[in-house]
Structure formats: C-alpha cells, structure tokens
Design a protein around this nucleic acid. Structure first.
Length: 556
RNA sequence: UGGUCUAUGGUGUAACGGUAGCACAACUGAUUUUGGUUCAGUUAGUUGAGGUUCGAAUCCUUGUAGACCAACCA
C-alpha cells in the first residue's frame, strides 16, 4: 500500500523568503517586525499580522522586533503600548527587541538634512489646502510649489528653525522633491516632516517637528536591518517611496511586501470605528466580549491557541477576503472541546419531582471531561426534587423530539432513567412542576434495566447556585456593516448582542470557578467567569455555543 | 476615466504547462449517557471572449468585475 505524505503548501511570503535564503541574501538572515501604532487596542486583524510576522521569523530561524510606530503624538498614548504588549504575549509570541520609531528621531532628522543637502527635499510654506490643490488628482498631474527651488542653504536653515520652534504649527513642512506629475500620488513631493507642538508619550517636549509615516517607517526598518517588512495591501502605492528613500539615503535595503488584511463578517475592524463604539458606549469598553479586539476575545473566553490556529487556517494571499466568523468559532470549539471542564447549568429551570424516589444524601459521580480521562470525576448530590431545562419537556412534541414527553423516557445525566407521570400548571397554564417516576435499576454506570433512551438531559440539584450569565450574539445584524455608504455602520448594531440571564441555576461546584478557565455548560456551550464577578455575585460569559443540530431541524 | 493590485465551489486557500486538492459551511449515514464529539460519505469551483500548445486555472491578447491611491493619519 502506498502512503502519500500530505503536501505542505507555502504562501507567497514563504516562497519569497525561501528564495532569498537560497540566494544567500543577507546571509540567509530573516528579521521581521510588528509595527503597531499605539493609538488603539489590537484586534483579530492584527493577530493575523502578528502570526505572519512572528510565525515567518520562527519558521526560518529568524527574529521579530516589536516596534511602536509612534510618530503622531496627538493620537498616541502609553495606555495602548501596555495593552499591545500584553496581547502579543497572550498570543504566545516573544519579540527580540522592543523599539520605538521615536527612538530614531535624531537619526531621522539627520537623514532629512542629508536629503536637503542632496537637493532632494525642500521646505514649503504653502498651507495644507494649497498643497492639496497643487497636488492634482489621480487623473491630472500636479503643479510645482513656488518654494520648490529654494537653495540648499535656505532649506537647511529653514528646516533647522522649524526644529527650533521658530514657526507656528502648520506654517511649514518639509517635502521630498520627486515628481509632481507622477501617476503615483505618493510620489508628488510627499510631506516628510510637519510641525506639531504636542507632547510625545516618549520624547516629551523635545521635538516640535515629527516625521510622517513615509519618512519614519522604512527608515526604521532600515536602521533595524529588517529583511522582510510585511504590511497590508493599502501600502503598495507607498512602496516606490519606501524604495526611493532607501536609495537616496543609501541605507540598509529593507524590502516591503504586502498581503491582504483580514476582514470578517458581522463585525467592523477599523480602529476608528472600534473607538467610536467605545466612546459612544455601544459597548462597555475595548475589552467588551463582543468586540473583535484581542482583549475582548480574551475576556470572552477565546483561547489564544484557537486564534493562532484560526490565523493559520485563513492563509495568506493578496486577494481581498471576508472570512466567515463561523471559522473562528469552529477553532474556538475545537480547542475548548478538548480542554473545557463539563458542568451542568440550567438556563430556564422548571421543577422536576421524582415521585417514587425516597433516597436521601445520594451522590452521583460525574465525569469532568469525556475527551480527557485525566480530568477525573466529581460528585453531584441527587434528590427527589431537581430542576431541568424548560425546553427539555413537551406535552405535545413535534416529530423527532428526543427529550422528555409523555411516553418518552429519558436519562438524567449521570443519574437515572425517568418517565413522565403528571404535571402542575399555574393559573396561566404555565407548567410549574413536572412529576416523573424513576427506574431504580437504571443508575448510570450500573444500569441493568435494559431501557433504551434517545438522550440524556442535564439538570441541577436543589442546592444549585445562582449567577448572572451573559449571552452574546454577533455585534451587527448584517454581514458587512460598512457596505452601505449612506448608512452609518452603527445603525446595524444588533440590539440583542448581549442578553443577560439571572434566573439560571448552576451546579454548586461553580462557586469555586476559576478566572481564565473554560467550562462547558453541558449541552449549552462554553462559558467562562467574567472579571465583573465578586464574592456576592458570579458573572459568566458565554464564549460560544455548541453546534445545535436540533435547532437546525426545528428551523425547517 | 491616470496609476497600482486582485479574480479558483457558499467562504477561505492550494495546484508554479500534465489527475483542480484541503479546511470551514451545507447535506447523508454510522457511533454516542451532550441533538456535542468522533467516523464514513455527498453536493459544489477555475471571471467572459479569443489565441499559443499534444495538453492551459497556469502563458499571450482583449474585455468584465472588485479593491486601493489626491490626511500636515498610520
């Protein structure tokens, strides 16, 4: 018999790197970087970038720097620096060096003067509006600024005085002298430096001029001798400028490569929009469990491994994509199924009385995880009165209903087989008690009754405890909240994205639930303890539900 | 409409001139003390039109569609 090895397919970045290594480029060295701007929290899209940058380096015996792209002091803050570092570590990655673009401000200033010296940059006095006007449009060439041909000496002097704070904010900029007629808008004398009298989170008030992205990012890559600078597709038009700066400055030739960013349905991914959700209180914060942020997913109970697995499954390519959020949920379930401790919780309890049960103090042994025998067993107290899920009993069930109904016996998980006898209703006809008889010889593990049942129901004993359970659904009701240009994305927010259940009854052992641990509420889904819990009140988050094929049958 | 990038099942992603494969989703069935898990199987795809070639998802020509580019943002 022939055994065929599964073929490991490579993505285009792996091919590029393998070619570079084969050609002996940079002596086969691989150094990548993850360059977040500290102006927001990391989301699942950043996780893709993190996995690519750190993953590639790991795969090819290289390293990855963490570099904060902090060139705009107005929007940046150390709060974000801390959260970003925490999230990367949580995903399981370690950076070789922690750098900041602001570490290079002196070098960058020097680079700028070099460019001026070569006649390749000039100080422009035009206003932002005038510059925009002369820039032309994608279909029309731009026009030269009247200040374009200042002498090297004058430019050097003006630029130094910009640095020294002699000019008001917005009055002057430094621009590269390239080509105002270029079909690439980014090559039409791009801005290199602007004046900002703003306090920087690292350099304080040392500087009043700050480099633009295009004059900081590539140069930072070069200073660190990054070999593969991997970014998203929208930076493709910046690449000629990236290369231009390296060429004119004659510095280390880092190379930029672009991949398609992650998009996911039923959510938004732009930092600006996420910030709006937070600031306008549509969610409780950056770590709201409904947010696509890593801190939100952590709080929701998504294991970091499942996020890394997800990033691996979605692949890397240059084509626009919208990933089904169901794939992420699949990865979460796949991990949690193997690791989560099983417990019983009844979300919508109804009293069940076992009329022929006369035992007292009986304890039943329950398996903690059928997927992992080493997880062991625990005891649950059983009695004449217990609670089951209201939807697990029907007087007049539809075809295909396996659960308790007149004439349809079921097993109580870890306990006995029961059979319906009677029920009690209140004045509105709502069932308040279900009376059943049980088969003493059907005890779980020692069943000699030879009764066949179709399913086992979860239940809780009378000693069950109370908690608040937060059930989450997708944050938006449409697949792409950005699709309609005339409608604000917030119009599509799912009003029922969080539903709070306070009447649930939980197996008593959950009063000792641990933070950071996942539980499978039997037949319901995966849950975890929320940070809002206190000694008086437990709060659980629903991470994700179990696949529910009965719900699917009912839909038909 | 100037430039750039991209088009493979419902969604992603492979196949580098030689059998269109994998994952998720969907659907069957088996197993099951979770209508979960697991297992077996099914459905379903190369953007249109030409061309080169014994042979094209792949190369060429030409359409079409989508994305990105005119912040003193990154």
């Amino acid at each position: 018999m022939e055994i065929t090895e599964p073929i490991e397919s490579k993505n285009f970045l792996q091919e590029i790197i393998e070619n570079d290594i084969a050609e002996g480029k940079h002596d086969g060295r691989v150094l990548t970087r993850f360059p977040p701007e500290p102006n927001g929290y990391l989301h699942i899209g950043h996780a893709k970038s993190i996995c690519i940058n750190f993953g590639l380096a790991k795969q090819y015996n290289g390293q990855t720097n963490l570099r904060f792209d902090d060139t705009n002091p107005v929007t940046e803050d150390t709060e974000y620096v801390e959260s970003i570092k925490e999230d990367i570590k949580w995903l399981g990655f370690d950076w070789a060096n922690e750098y900041y673009a602001s570490d290079y401000f002196d070098t960058l200033y020097d680079y700028a003067t070099q460019l001026i010296g070569k006649g390749l940059a000039y100080v422009d006095d035009l206003t932002a509006e005038q510059i925009a006007e002369l820039k032309g449009t994608p279909t029309e060439p731009g026009k030269n600024s009247p200040h374009r041909d200042r002498s090297v000496e004058e430019n050097l002097d003006l630029f130094r005085r910009m640095k020294d704070g002699e000019f008001p904010e917005g009055s002057k900029v430094l621009r590269a002298k390239i080509d105002m007629a270029s079909p690439n808008m980014h090559m039409r004398d791009p801005l290199l430096y602007r004046i900002k009298y703003a306090h920087h989170h690292r350099t304080g008030d040392k500087w009043c001029i700050y480099p633009m992205y295009d004059f900081a990012h590539g140069q930072s890559d070069s200073i660190e001798t990054i070999t593969h600078s991997i970014c998203t597709l929208e930076f493709i038009p910046h690449r000629p400028l990236y290369d231009w700066c390296i060429e004119k400055l004659e510095i280390f030739p880092s190379r930029q490569y672009e991949f398609a960013r992650l998009n996911m349905n039923y959510t938004v991914m732009s930092k600006r929009k996420l910030l709006q959700l937070v600031n306008e209180n549509h969610v409780s914060g950056w770590d709201d469990p409904r947010m696509p942020t890593l801190s939100g997913m952590r709080r929701r109970g998504y294991p970091p491994k499942s996020i890394v697995e997800f990033c691996d499954k979605i692949g890397v390519a240059k084509r626009e994509n919208i990933i089904d959020i169901g794939l992420l949920e699949f990865c979460v379930r796949e991990d949690l199924n193997k690791t989560a401790t099983r417990v019983m919780v009844v979300m919508d309890p109804v009293k069940l009385v076992i009329t022929n049960y006369e035992g007292t103090g009986e304890h039943l042994s329950a398996e903690n995880n059928p997927e992992d025998q080493s997880a062991g067993h625990r005891n649950i107290s059983f009695g004449k009165v217990i609670y089951i899920e209201r939807e697990d009993f029907m007087l007049d069930p539809p075809k295909g209903y396996f659960r308790l109904s007149p004439g349809n016996k079921v097993r109580l998980k870890y306990a006995y087989i029961i059979e319906y006898e009677n029920h009690i209703t209140d004045s509105e006809g709502r069932i308040t008690e279900i009376h059943v008889k049980y088969y003493p010889d059907s005890k779980s593990g020692e069943d000699t009754s030879s009764i066949k049942v179709k399913t086992a129901l979860h239940w809780v004993p009378e000693s069950a405890i109370n908690a608040e359970i937060r059930l989450y659904d997708r944050l938006f009701v449409v697949e792409n909240p950005n699709s309609d240009k005339d409608t604000d994305f917030k119009e599509f927010i799912n009003k029922d994205s969080m539903v709070v259940n306070t009447r649930a009854m939980l197996e008593p052992i959950l009063k000792d639930a641990d933070f950071g641990k996942s539980y499978q509420f039997f037949r319901l889904g995966y849950f975890c303890l929320d940070k809002d819990s206190s000694s008086e009140k437990l709060v659980f988050n629903k991470t994700v539900g179990l696949k529910d094929s009965w719900a699917k049958i009912l839909q038909k």
